[in-house]
């Protein structure tokens, strides 16, 4: 470590200690475990600052926060998965003994096929065996067995996605392009006289409502043309594809702009934590 790094480290340690003590004094009025709480709040504040320091450049404090974050979060999800899925849902169905051991109510059940009664015990041992096969990856010889559970997962979800998206992203979307280009409920055709009378972009006027429908129709059309892979984008087709990409870009811009404000409020949230919960400068 260079000399500067040591000095910076010393300053950080001192600041941490001062903050801890000061926070503990403040919290001791309201809480019994003030020292522990003060420590935790100070840790939270320093980790927040450590992450922000990354904006300047990569540094040991960011590295520390990053590595701690990775370890703690991985364990968090493991514990969560273990207690909810394994202990909460799997074991109570698998065996009465195990359910009792983990103090969970036993959930027997099954499905009667008529000629064969499959109990939960049988049905839920299957994923356990498949899960164990997955762990065979770790053995140099049995790695190929781990493809069986993967095949189950990928096959099942591929089948599921195939029909689901065909419905939601294809049939439903196609039917919603059937917009009335000539005026219908709720923007009824009111005759040519009233056509331009309410020209305002809030899409309540007749002209604007119809224009919107036309823009949507042409936009969808050109957008789809842009996504044609097996035809050269030249001539009329090429021009439609150009229009398509313009419409896409306008959309992406709008979506970008829409997100900006939300992201700024996240920053405000963090600053509130630093200045209110930690430093107590604002209330």
């Amino acid at each position: 470590m260079s000399r500067t790094a040591v000095i910076v480290f010393a300053i950080v340690v001192v600041l941490f200690a001062v903050s801890w003590v000061a926070k503990a004094v403040v919290l001791s009025d309201t809480s019994d475990s003030g020292t522990l709480d003060a420590f935790l709040v100070t840790v939270a504040a320093f980790l927040t600052l450590a992450i922000y320091s990354f904006l300047y450049k990569d540094n040991p404090y960011y590295k520390f926060a990053e590595h701690l974050f990775v370890g703690v979060s991985a364990a968090f999800w493991m514990c969560q998965g273990f207690w909810t899925t394994i202990v909460g849902n799997l074991l109570p169905r698998l065996s009465e003994g195990m359910a009792n051991w983990f103090m969970q109510p036993y959930q027997p059940g099954g499905y009667d096929l008529g000629f064969l009664n499959l109990s939960y015990t049988v049905l839920y041992w299957i994923p356990v065996i498949l899960g164990l096969l997955l762990l065979m990856r770790l053995s140099p010889k049995g790695g190929w067995l781990s493809r069986w559970p993967l095949a189950l997962i990928i096959g099942t979800t591929a089948g599921l996605n195939f029909v689901r998206y065909l419905r939601s992203d294809f049939i439903v979307q196609v039917s919603s392009t059937f917009v009335p280009l000539l005026g219908q409920e709720p923007h009824q055709w009111q005759g040519i006289g009233a056509f331009f009378s309410n020209f305002s972009l809030d899409a309540s006027g007749q002209f604007v409502a119809l224009l919107a429908n036309w823009v949507i129709f042409i936009g969808v059309f050109c957008g789809l043309v842009y996504f044609f892979f097996s035809k050269e984008h030249t001539g009329l087709f090429g021009r439609a594809s150009r229009v398509g990409i313009w419409v896409l870009m306008i959309t992406f811009g709008a979506s970008f702009g829409y997100t900006v404000m939300g992201r700024i409020s996240l920053l405000v949230g963090r600053l509130t934590f630093l200045f209110e919960d930690w430093l107590g400068l604002i209330t």
């Binding site: 992450i51 990354f54 990569d58 960011y62 590295k63 926060a65 990053e66 974050f69 990775v70 370890g71 703690v72 979060s73 991985a74 968090f76 999800w77």
Partner: peptide, 13 residues
């Protein structure tokens, strides 16, 4: 790790 931003922090690193 299976945590969105922890993953991002690590990949950034």
């Amino acid at each position: 790790t299976q945590s969105q931003f922890a993953y991002v922090a690590a990949v950034n690193g």
